[in-house]
Design a binder for these strands. Structure first.
Lengths: 125, 125
DNA sequence: GCTCGTCATAGACAGCCATCAATACAGGCG
DNA sequence: CGCCTGTATTGATGGCTGTCTATGACGAGC
């Protein structure tokens, strides 16, 4: 996963790890409570303007990697607050991090975003 | 990687695809605060297990319409609580309602779901 | 060793939110 | 009209959450 955080990303991996036909489709049939809770965690992570802008800043960056110092400087918030938001996104499986020397670099997890996107598109269809 | 951490191009990453699509793309360029707030409202609406199950129940229903009484009976929650969640989903533009006689019927707004789905899929690359 | 810079964590606190009970509103039916 | 049923709104409350300050952990370099 990332630096030395405990391996506890249940959100997406648990569900995506299943067979291709058992993915919760949100509207093909009513989802159960545990699936709803797992999916809600990811949407909740996206449900904050700061975190959305963080995702946007990371994804827009050429190379797909941004170090925390650049992210912090893009907001009128303290560094611990940004770190807190990054942790929530990371625990939702939407981003992950890698330390190189002094700096920590974050990047998106495309599979997670793609999966949520497909979920909504399928619900629309 | 340069020796010192220089203020790299934080805002210039954009403007590459000046195609016809002018919607906030989340990743083609960093989104501004107002777009982030608007999008966050929708994701926040989806970021609750009860509301996700409500969307699922409505979308899974044959005909695409569900009356509130059926939704209420699907949860161990009081009717005002369900009504509260429906209001949040409605204000996010994800569902809308129609009164027919005594009952109120809710249905999904596919365009809204599709738009959020495309947003995430595009961000996935 | 020590110090500095970068990032994460802990603790505190204010504001928000999910939930409930009580109440109000709206429509059908006597 | 009055009564009943189905929904929405109000007000209260406990828990969650976004933010801060203070501090700790890690790496680089003197």
């Amino acid at each position: 996963m990332s630096i030395q955080h405990a391996p506890r990303d249940l959100g997406l991996v648990a569900v995506t790890g299943l067979g291709a036909c058992t993915r919760p489709a949100l509207v093909s049939e009513p989802i159960d409570e545990s699936s709803a809770a797992a999916l809600a965690q990811v949407f909740k992570a996206l449900g904050d303007p700061v975190r959305l802008r963080l995702v946007s800043l990371i994804g827009a960056r050429q190379g797909g990697e941004v170090c925390v110092c650049d992210l912090t400087s893009a907001f009128a918030l303290t560094q611990p607050t940004i770190s807190h938001h990054l942790k929530i996104l990371r625990e939702a499986g939407l981003i992950d991090s890698q330390r190189r020397g002094t700096w920590v670099y974050y990047r998106l997890v495309p599979a997670a975003l793609e999966r949520m996107g497909e979920l909504l598109s399928a619900a629309a269809g």
